[in-house]
């Protein structure tokens, strides 16, 4: 059995770990609320833009822009992997990376070339599996709260590379926020832009032939498509931010509870050891007295 002193030190150490995990949990809870609010506040813009792009694309046809029609090939696939900058968030980053790897294996099995675009530090584990395929490692370590400009920078970079013919299809991987307990890793195609097919156009004027466009439908669409890519990335980053905090909150809650269990177990062990020491001492005294 471990010595009394060793046990005491151990209990102290677990207690301070518990203090840290508890603090992290509370910080994550506070940040989660803010991240959730940001994710919700970003919805109206994305929904409206999506609606307009969808109705314009139906009117104009996919030939209007390579962002809609594709590059005519389907060989090089770019996987944009959006992860967090910090760890200790449960399986959050692992799940996103796993989803990306699964897609990469699937594509490679189909004979495609796969390259990666990392947004976030925790995606770097992919280096181990695809050392040659990491094209870009976009640094987000200075970003505290996600702003639209951060997403736009990535989108502009992607579109420039797409135009230069570096890849044919781009997929985006992130974790969709469902609740503090559930974050769903998802992959979605962002280039060429997938037009959401919602049957009837939901815009009030979409069926109306008298809508006037300035400069022209094609010009507006060409202007909006890059924005649409940016907004999708922005949305993914917001979802990711909320998911990260949710995941961390759950992970740290578990850790705190585990630490509590451990302290309880160690305390019992400590008390038993102390009792045993007292008994031994008593036995020694009594037998010593009897010997006299």
């Amino acid at each position: 059995m471990a010595s009394l002193k060793a046990l005491k030190i151990r209990i102290g150490s677990v207690k301070s770990t518990q203090k840290i995990t508890k603090a992290m949990k509370m910080v994550a809870t506070a940040k989660l609320r803010r991240a959730q609010e940001a994710a919700i506040a970003g919805r109206p813009y994305a929904e409206r833009l999506e609606g307009v792009v969808a109705s314009l694309a139906r009117n104009v046809g996919v030939g209007a822009s390579p962002l809609l029609a594709g590059s005519g090939k389907d060989q090089v696939h770019l996987l944009v992997v959006a992860t967090s900058e910090r760890g200790l968030a449960g399986a959050f980053n692992t799940n996103i990376v796993r989803a990306a790897r699964r897609k990469a294996e699937e594509l490679e099995a189909a004979g495609k070339t796969v390259i990666f675009y990392l947004a976030g530090k925790k995606g770097r584990v992919l280096r181990r599996f695809y050392p040659q395929a990491i094209k870009v490692d976009h640094d987000l370590s200075t970003v505290k709260t996600v702003a639209f400009d951060d997403a736009k920078a990535i989108a502009d970079d992607l579109i420039a590379r797409y135009t230069a013919g570096e890849f044919d299809v781009a997929h985006l991987f992130y974790a969709k926020f469902q609740s503090a307990l559930v974050q769903q890793p998802v992959g979605q195609q962002i280039i060429p832009v997938a037009i959401p097919d919602r049957g009837e156009p939901k815009l009030a004027n979409a069926g109306d032939a008298t809508v006037e466009y300035e400069p022209s439908e094609e010009a507006i669409l060409a202007d909006l498509l890059p924005r649409n890519v940016a907004i999708q990335i922005f949305r993914a980053m917001l979802e990711n931010a909320a998911s990260e905090q949710g995941s961390r909150m759950t992970a740290m809650d578990n850790a705190t509870r585990n630490a509590g269990d451990m302290i309880k177990r160690l305390s019992i062990q400590y008390n038993r050891a102390r009792q045993a020491a007292i008994t031994t001492e008593l036995v020694e005294i009594i037998s010593g007295a009897e010997a006299l």
Binding site: T210, E212, Y213, E214, I220
Partner: peptide, 8 residues
């Protein structure tokens, strides 16, 4: 009451 219109 403006007519339906879209512009960049």
């Amino acid at each position: 009451g403006h007519a339906p219109f879209m512009s960049t």
